[in-house]
């Protein structure tokens, strides 16, 4: 599943400004996400072992003092690999999301403001893109370009651009129909001005939420893509690839396959907790 499923999003009613306050669940979520972001940044300085170093003669070795999470399918330290994987999983997902939201958002607002033929052409174009299954597009890209971080970011970004386009366009269309935009248009303001000054500030809340959700989708898609062979270059690995490469250990419940999956789940749930508990002004009521 992916963010293609964005249907409609309606700008939340503008509430009077109040103090930004998160409930407990939101704080927990923010804590988990913050923890992983910190790990991603300082990862290389705190890893107990080199990501590629063989530290265990056994495969899927058990937990012990030197290897707190055991060893992986070649006898490498699972903890170190998860720590390093954090940068790739979170980094790639964040970069791809940013790119997708930037492209989709810009074009979405452009379509909303321009209306008519431009809107029609862009909408049809993104409709066509959405209708090609996302894992298939990824497969074609892998076959054509191989697998590297820029390719990963680009692929995931392209896959999520149509979704971002749809939601930004829907939000912008709503605002665009409001009186003050019409007034500005009547004043003879240009498209750029309308987008920058009139529309963007009024949809900022929901689109930030959308950014968070899309980030989650991107992370999940990345882990799914690892099944098809798309991932960062060895010896590094993102979390999805870690699950994939150690799947032989699943029957024995090896931590090498369980822990990366737990890491993915923790970030996903963390981001979701934050989004779900955002005060009304920040949430887009349409889910995706």
């Amino acid at each position: 599943m992916s963010a293609d499923q964005t249907i409609t999003a309606v700008a939340a009613p503008a509430l009077p400004r109040r103090r930004f306050r998160l409930p407990l669940a939101g704080i927990i979520g923010a804590g988990v996400v913050g923890f992983w972001v910190v790990i991603a940044i300082i990862g290389p300085y705190i890893v107990p072992h080199d990501v590629g170093a063989l530290v265990d003669d056994d495969l899927f070795g058990r937990m012990r003092w030197a290897l707190p999470l055991g060893s992986d399918y070649l006898g490498r330290d699972v903890l170190s690999r998860i720590i390093i994987g954090a940068r790739y999983s979170i980094g790639v997902a964040a970069a791809a999301t940013f790119l997708a939201v930037f492209m989709g958002g810009t074009l979405g607002m452009l379509a909303a403001v321009s209306r008519g033929a431009v809107d029609m052409a862009l909408s049809r174009f993104f409709d066509a893109l959405i209708s090609i299954p996302s894992k298939m597009s990824a497969l074609v890209v892998i076959a054509a370009l191989g697998s590297s971080i820029p390719v990963l970011v680009g692929t995931v970004a392209v896959i999520y651009t149509p979704g971002a386009f749809r939601i930004w366009r829907a939000l912008a269309v709503n605002v665009n129909a409001l009186d003050f935009v019409e007034v500005a248009r009547a004043r003879g303001e240009g498209t750029g001005y309308l987008i920058r000054e009139e529309i963007l500030p009024n949809i900022a809340g929901p689109v930030l939420t959308d950014f968070g959700l899309r980030f989650v989708f991107a992370m999940l898609l990345l882990s799914g893509l690892s099944f098809l062979g798309l991932g960062v270059q060895p010896p590094n690995a993102d979390w999805g690839s870690l699950v994939r490469e150690n799947i032989n250990g699943l029957a024995d419940g090896a931590l090498a396959v369980v822990m990366p999956a737990v890491a993915i789940a923790s970030v996903t749930i963390g981001v979701n907790l934050v989004i779900d508990n955002l005060p009304g002004r920040w949430s887009s009521t349409g889910e995706h």
Partner: peptide, 28 residues
């Protein structure tokens, strides 16, 4: 080949030779 290259990469590092792994798709 991925696994062998990773082990080679490790041993090569110790003697001052850096290998950069480039994984390409199985298709073609």
């Amino acid at each position: 080949s991925e696994e062998m290259a990773q082990l080679l990469q490790q041993t090569a590092l110790q003697i001052g030779c850096n290998f950069n792994l480039q994984r390409v798709p199985a298709d073609g």
